[in-house]
Design a protein around this nucleic acid. Structure first.
Lengths: 344, 344
DNA sequence: CCTGCCTGAGAAAGCGTTTTCTCAGTTCGC
DNA sequence: GCGAACTGAGAAAACGCTTTCTCAGGCAGG
């Protein structure tokens, strides 16, 4: 016959009545304030236990001005990279007693800032993951989103740490690896045009071309998923390249699948490389040569940065840059003699 | 020079002052209450726009008794199945203006009920995904979690819709398919012992054995990830089975990878099947025969059920059962002559 | 024995909304 | 032309908690 306040749920008032004290005292006890007589505290605790009282977090949030929740907005929850970031973030935050609220923008860049704003208002901080919005828009809304940390994107706005993977260096490492294997005609199967990480890859390849004038690098349009790779087979063959750098592992897998259907051998006829080293990359046949990104760790670091901001520690490094690690597997091998374009 | 209340953020009071009205009126305007003079409303809207006023959701939640947020607790955010459910749920909920808060129990079943309780208190409803806790515990806490919907788990507790995939039927379909291909010795590479969906598969196989006495079905211990499958190669070979039903696609992929390393051909020597039809299943070599589960749709349905509960519609069906669809691909083929056990 | 300090706990003021209550000022009907 | 019904908007209560303010009572010191 637990008495209830009007709302039907058990509140601080109920336990106050039951323990014969004021609700202020109940609050003190629940929050470990030691200015309370041990006997009274015990009585309150007993009453709380008996009533199975659990403080209402909303009331608590309003009073304390914090929610113990952080938000993350991702462009596409179906993308393994973002899933991994979410996982790392969620785990790290959970260890500090924070929960995470997710928002998926479904690659609609115009929704991002609204979504981000809404999420931010409900949370103590925000992680913006590879936002597709323009630099101008990002800079404009960044202050209203503080505490904010950026992943795979940078901004001029102050006090916004950003964690970026050095995709530029990564593609250069991969390209270098292919050249070492004797490939002189490479092709890059690009990612989504609005993706900043694609931009970094392109810049990396420019640098690579400058340093290796003897190597031919063809740029091909693309995307970020399986189908992109699968549909790119013709373009890849037409390029005459023997070493293909796919935008990411998904694209590489799609490409390998397409090449396989054409009866071509990887890496016998063509070497294919990916990027990211998603868990599946190890298990493709042939196993995929790729650049491993410590992506879960990225999520974890994002939390650490955000935590510093929330706690106003202020002495934190403004961000950091993650180096991919070349992961050589079976999908890359010695170059054949250059093929003529448009091979059967 | 936007004036601020003590907290630093712009509140309803600031708008009220600027528009020269009471904050009650501001609230009325913001919520589309038409008992406000159009002129006054316009003035308020102008003030709100100029101050970029955004209502504080926490205060709103407290007053309204709802958060427009739902929670989901999953045993392992790294599992593609749960990722897909999360995605479906998140998308469907977003369409109705709800956000989702995630909680990952990391397969620690003792944490589940605490996590669930905490999540629930911050949200308007909860989705419990394949909980690992005991039936007794589940039944006990279910009422305190209402509105609650269960995925891949059932309970006696009232008013708890549950969405389950008919794994029992699924394995029977797969087994039937293998038998049609001439396999007479099958093996089942089981999943986590505490998993209810594993239990359903086992029951399905019992039914299958009863209906097909001439077929031998060996049960092998297992798990739910790549490595499980990879490490199971010896046990699989020792069983002498020519048709292997793996617990899920991940396990199947691990197994295929292990078999490949041993120089065995799939499906020439052994047929391997998975379960779930994760996106990658299409792209393994050979492409994986599996049972497709409309898993994203499951998340979507979960939202619909939960929404009905939140809105107290009450006339909803108590849950539903999803039928997997057999997806025949290249990893299953005609049986060879039965092999002797412990093949080289 | 009185002043002053300290301790413990109730009263009350937030936190930022929504919503009910209330009432002044209009409009309408007879 | 006066009471009744209506309209619009402010005052205040409510949501559930934390925290500051305040004060009664106990105790030590002079």
């Amino acid at each position: 016959m637990a008495r209830k306040s009007a709302s039907g749920r058990i509140g601080i008032a109920d336990v106050a009545v039951k323990a014969g004290v004021s609700h202020a005292t109940v609050s003190r006890v629940m929050n470990g304030n030691f200015t309370v007589d041990p006997d009274v505290a015990a009585r309150v605790r007993a009453a709380a236990a008996e009533l199975k009282y659990q403080p209402n977090p909303v009331g608590r949030s309003l009073a304390l001005g914090k929610t113990d929740t952080i938000g993350i907005v991702v462009p596409d929850l179906a993308n393994p990279t973002f899933q991994a970031i979410l996982r790392g973030l969620s785990r790290a935050a959970a260890q500090d007693g924070y929960r995470v609220l997710i928002a998926d923008s479904f690659e609609v860049s115009s929704e991002e800032s609204i979504l981000a704003g809404e999420a931010r208002r409900r949370c103590d901080g925000l992680v913006l993951c590879a936002p597709r919005m323009s630099d101008a828009e990002l800079t404009e809304i960044a202050p209203s989103l503080h505490p904010l940390v950026l992943i795979n994107r940078t901004t001029d706005a102050p006090d916004v740490p950003s964690l970026v993977v050095d995709y530029g260096q990564g593609v250069q490492d991969i390209a270098g690896h292919l050249v070492e294997l004797g490939h002189t005609r490479l092709a890059f199967l690009a990612g989504p045009p609005r993706s900043a990480s694609n931009g970094m890859r392109l810049k990396g390849l420019e640098a690579f071309k400058a340093a290796h004038p003897q190597v031919e690098v063809t740029m091909l349009e693309g995307g970020s998923d399986f189908d992109t790779g699968h549909e790119a087979v013709d373009a890849v063959l037409a390029s005459g390249a023997t070493g293909i750098l796919a935008f990411n592992d998904l694209v590489a897998m799609g490409l390998m699948s397409g090449l396989h259907e054409r009866g071509l051998d990887v890496p016998g006829d063509i070497s294919v490389t990916g990027f990211d080293d998603i868990p599946f990359a190890k298990y493709t046949t042939p196993a995929l040569t790729t650049a491993a990104v410590p992506i879960t760790e990225l999520g974890e670091q994002a939390w650490h940065q955000l935590r510093a901001l929330i706690r106003k520690e202020g002495n934190e490094v403004p961000g950091s840059r993650f180096q991919p690690r070349l992961e050589v597997r079976a999908s890359s091998g010695p170059a054949k003699a250059p093929r003529s374009a448009v091979h059967g």
